[in-house]
Write a protein that binds this DNA or RNA. Structure first.
Lengths: 131, 131
DNA sequence: CTTGACCTTCCCATAATGGGAAGGTCTACG
DNA sequence: CGTAGACCTTCCCATTATGGGAAGGTCAAG
């Protein structure tokens, strides 16, 4: 199976597959005589795993950790949970940050008439000299 | 006032000030005989504006729009509000995305014992063949 | 005049892709 | 057999907004 077929089968673009190999997330693929990368069922399994982890927002280094744990039969679920928990905390903190932006902006937008006149509390707030 | 003082006064690093000038967010600063950038009170005002807009999550192109509106005495608050509203929608959509990651992960983590045994629903989910 | 704290420009790195060029390969069809 | 078109390869560039750091000029104080 060539890279294009692996891409179609997993939803991971050929570009990404090559990149993952380059940064060490995937072991170098076998090559055909012509130098084409060749993939097996096991490789697709790994690509699916990476794809799902990425969809859950894990960074590539985190995905790398998860892959290592996945392959380690002697792992402790404690370690897996730790990676996930740390990530959830990062996500929550990012959400809080974005939410506070939303709160501020909706507050300001509510006070903005949004008509032809130039007066607007959004701009007034942005030009505030304090803070 | 030199760039370092402007940076101290506004909380915008000298690096960032130069970058903002480079990408056209700030008009090129006046220069001293020695080629040093020289800033006035009005420039600090603009830097403060940019700083606050960035803290609210606006991208540099969006900040650029806001600056243009700010400088435009004949603006309609409608246009300002539109920029803010569009941004809020982007933020909300990002929040939803992150929140659904959090939901999935907390659901999985709750079921993970987090002890010395290797079994873990987090990994089981990631290796799922479907989806 | 020297030292240290400034300033300048220029280049590199970040994260995780996508785009695209130049060139080799494979397959199917006439 | 030859060729077109769909693959594949590697390599380089671009994205976003910022920081780090080098090499070299400037300024103020002692």
């Amino acid at each position: 199976m060539n890279i294009g077929q692996a891409a179609d089968a997993t939803g991971v673009s050929a570009k990404r597959i090559r990149y993952y190999e380059q940064v060490g997330l995937l072991k170098p693929a076998e090559r055909s005589d012509a130098g084409y990368r060749v993939y097996e069922a096991g490789d697709l399994h790994t690509l699916h795993f990476i794809q799902r982890a990425r969809r859950l927002g894990f960074s590539l280094p985190q995905v790398s950790e998860l892959l290592a744990l996945w392959h380690d039969q002697g792992r402790s679920s404690r370690n897996v949970k730790a990676v996930a928990t740390r990530h959830v905390e990062e996500l929550r903190s990012k959400i809080d940050e974005l939410q506070s932006m939303v709160d501020t902006l909706t507050h300001l937008a509510k006070r903005c008439d949004g008509d032809d006149r130039p007066d607007c509390p959004i701009l007034s707030d942005l030009q505030r000299s304090d803070s």
